[in-house]
């Protein structure tokens, strides 16, 4: 699987591999020998297939900032797990299932209402223990499957959030 990078509005896939002590960049079906050398003044030299350019590089988290040829760029590395986790459509990820059988103590939301991550939607009681069912992401309540006072079985659906938009 290639790495995914974002520069301005473009998404680019590339990979880095070693060839002995040297490196190659794999991009767009081709292999380019590459090297990065630090310079004493804090700048660096990037070499791609024999072309050398002076750069200044600074990194913060998943963003790499590069000054190259009089322009400043921000190159973001996109974690494949993040990117792919959001790419699904409506799924059971949108439904809160009862962790155990119990009774609904209180419902604090209505269908159509907007909730934010971490917001308590309802409180259930089971084995003398109260549990808050909390919104796991921002979203809109699509369906309330239970009401206050109702009892339910384990894995019964409690609340459905409207499917989040595909990335």
């Amino acid at each position: 699987m290639f790495h995914l990078f974002a520069i301005r509005d473009e998404k680019l896939s590339a990979a880095l591999a070693r060839r002995g002590r040297a490196y190659v960049l794999l991009h767009d079906g081709r292999e380019y020998p590459v090297a990065l050398r630090q310079l004493p003044d804090g700048a660096a030299e990037i070499e791609v297939a024999g072309n050398v350019a002076r750069v200044v590089i600074a990194r913060e988290g998943d963003d790499t900032f590069v000054r190259l040829g009089g322009e400043s760029y921000a190159v973001r590395w996109i974690d494949p797990l993040d990117r792919l986790a959001h790419a699904g459509g409506a799924s059971l990820d949108d439904v809160a299932l009862a962790p155990m059988p119990g009774t609904v103590v209180a419902v604090q939301i209505k269908p159509g209402e907007r909730v934010t991550r971490g917001q308590t939607m309802m409180v259930i009681e089971s084995m003398k223990l109260e549990t808050a069912i909390v919104a796991w992401r921002d979203g809109v309540i699509e369906t309330l499957h239970v009401s206050a006072g109702q009892t339910f079985e384990r894995a019964a659906p409690l609340v459905t959030l409207a499917a989040s938009r595909e990335e």
């Binding site: 699987m1 494949p80 797990l81 792919l84 790419a87 699904g88 459509g89 059971l92 894995a155």
Partner: peptide, 27 residues
Amino acid sequence: CDLHTRVSGTADYPAHSEEEAIAIARD
């Protein structure tokens, strides 16, 4: 997927897509 990742515990990681499943396996 949901039966085995949430209830029976026969499978460990649910994935929305094949690509995600492979990314998870790589991880």
